[in-house]
Design a protein around this nucleic acid. Structure first.
Lengths: 132, 132
DNA sequence: CCGTATCCAAGGGGATACTG
DNA sequence: CAGTATCCCCTTGGATACGG
């Protein structure tokens, strides 16, 4: 089903890294300069932003325009192909808006249970020791 | 905009790793056993599958049921919360189906151009050397 | 301003062997 | 069957310095 060469795998592989989706989201409305993108995407380094943008350009999702001025100015924008990704990404964003708190609640419940089991184990251990 | 603590970032962080989306896709219709999942998701190791399933369980997206039989049998299924992810993931899958070939075409065009520029540089170099 | 080059630490993840 | 434990390589990615 999910062979490495099926379209789903190849498609998801484009997008499932740390920064790609965020970079697309940051450009969704209008072209952005490199420094603007770096400011919009909190925590991304120049290295990773450059790398992500190059990959997106190579994949035909982003257009890069260099203005030969000093200091340099480079503008990035989504290509028509790139814009086709906005809708599916919005679906994920909307899902996050709606459900992320339930996920985080589940997570802390799970961890709480872990702590409780650990607690019980410790109590059991202590009782065992004191009865020796 | 895309602060590390905004819902979008927190949501996407759940999903943007190598295996999470694929694992959810593999379970979308019905519960699956560990070995079935490993067979469905080509290339995943036991280590990564275990790790991914534990994370999904912790996040409340997957339910894990252990049957105390020999040999062991464990069934994984999506929780109601997990099922809310199917639609957005399908949107990505459909995008892949429709556009992945355009992306790959763009990619090979880009690489071809790179090779051409390299070719030109080499030619220029050779001409320069031979004229010395 | 928009990168590239280099170095380096952390950890992701495969291979293998073992267990209930 | 469904994991866990250990080892270890190698990639990822941050920090820094430099260049057009």
């Amino acid at each position: 089903m999910l062979n490495v060469n099926c379209r789903t795998r190849r498609g998801l592989a484009l997008l499932t890294d740390q920064w790609t989706l965020l970079t697309i989201v940051a450009m969704r409305h209008e072209k952005k300069r490199f420094s603007q993108l770096q400011a919009l995407i909190e925590g991304i380094s120049k290295k990773m932003l450059t790398q992500t943008l190059r990959k997106l350009e190579r994949d035909g999702l982003v257009k890069r325009v260099i203005y030969p001025v000093i200091p340099p100015m480079v503008e990035y924008s989504l290509t028509p192909l790139g814009r086709t990704l906005i809708e599916p990404i919005y679906a994920l964003r909307d899902w996050s808006d709606q459900y992320i708190e339930q996920v985080e609640q589940a997570r802390s419940d799970y961890d709480q249970q872990d702590r409780n089991s650990l607690q019980e184990e410790i109590i059991a251990l202590v009782q065992q020791r004191t009865s020796e």
